[in-house]
Simulated scan of single mutants.
Amino acid sequence: MKRQKRDRLERAHSRGYQAGLSGRPRELCPYQSLDARSHWLGGWRKAMEDRSVI
């Protein structure tokens, strides 16, 4: 996988994580492409898990 593509997907994951920590609903995902959207949602889910532990 190209580094550029991986960086973009890592950024989507990170932004999803931040959105999840701040309590934003998953319906507000800004990404339309399937890859970026799935990474954003993965980050969002991880943040939701982390929030429930605290």
Rank of each mutant, 00 (worst) to 15 (best):
M1P: 07
Y17S: 02
R51F: 05
R45C: 07
M48R: 15
M1C: 08
A12R: 00
G20V: 01
L9D: 01
A19K: 05
K5A: 12
R11V: 05
L9S: 02
S14L: 14
H13M: 10
G23N: 05
P30E: 05
S38Q: 14
D35R: 09
S33A: 13
E10V: 05
K2H: 14
L41T: 02
R24H: 09
E49D: 13
D7F: 11
Q18I: 07
R45H: 09
R24D: 06
L9E: 05
G42H: 01
S38L: 10
Q4P: 02
C29Q: 04
S22V: 07
A12K: 01
L21A: 07
H13K: 15
K2C: 09
S14I: 11
Y17G: 03
R8N: 07
G20W: 01
R15V: 06
D50I: 04
P30A: 04
R24S: 07
L34W: 13
Y31V: 00
E10R: 07
Y17C: 00
K2I: 08
G43K: 01
E49W: 09
R26A: 11
E27I: 14
A36G: 02
M1Q: 09
I54P: 08
L34I: 13
L21S: 06
L41W: 02
R51I: 08
E49A: 12
